Computed example of a mutant assay.
Amino acid sequence: MTLPVSLLAVIDEMDTFGDNFHPYINRQTGELVTLSSDDLCIVEEGFELADYPEWQQEILQKTVEVLDSDAYVPLPGKFAIHEYAIMQRFCFAVEDAGLSRELQDQIHGAGAFRRFKNTLTRHNMLDTWFACRQAAFTEIAIKWLEEHNIPYIRDVRD
């Protein structure tokens, strides 16, 4: 990937985050790279490249490159995105007061995300939620890219 970076590509990388995956961007080239926690641990603990299969050697070499370079910066992760807060804002923004309260009740405790989505599905609002979530991710990505002086294009999803 080259600069300017695709805003949609950045959002897609941010959306694949998790406890086991860590997305980075090269602010000089726009290259997006997602590293696994396992590969990060291998590199951070020290390793002999020859001890790993060829396919993994390439990944480990890329991991070393990313960690050793000031050009790569981590994209916003789950703490910066805070999807639970996005869900809360969505619940409060629902105009139907009864549905708003029902959604607010669903987002507490274990299984909150599943209950939230099930309630949205029952009320035929899942597409509305995903549009809201996408808008929130877009806002976070734009703010982050601008803070890091990384040029981007506002491309659109087909």
Rank of each mutant, 00 (worst) to 15 (best):
M1C: 06
L3E: 04
L7I: 02
V10I: 15
D12I: 00
F17C: 05
G18L: 04
H22R: 14
T29E: 08
S37W: 11
V43W: 07
E48V: 04
A50V: 09
I59M: 12
I59P: 02
V64T: 13
E65Q: 13
L67G: 04
D68I: 00
D68E: 10
D70K: 12
P74N: 11
P74C: 06
G77K: 13
I81Q: 14
A85T: 09
A85G: 10
I86L: 11
M87I: 02
Q88G: 01
Q88A: 06
R89K: 08
F92W: 14
A93N: 07
E95D: 07
D96P: 02
Q104A: 08
D105G: 09
H108K: 12
G109S: 08
A110K: 14
F113Q: 03
R114Q: 15
F116W: 07
F116A: 04
N118V: 01
T121F: 08
T121W: 06
R122I: 00
H123A: 10
M125E: 03
W129G: 11
W129M: 12
F130H: 14
Q134M: 02
A135Q: 15
A135P: 02
A135V: 03
E139L: 03
I140P: 01
A141G: 08
W144F: 13
W144E: 06
E147V: 02
H148F: 03
P151R: 15
I153P: 01
I153F: 06
D155P: 09
D155Q: 11
D158S: 07
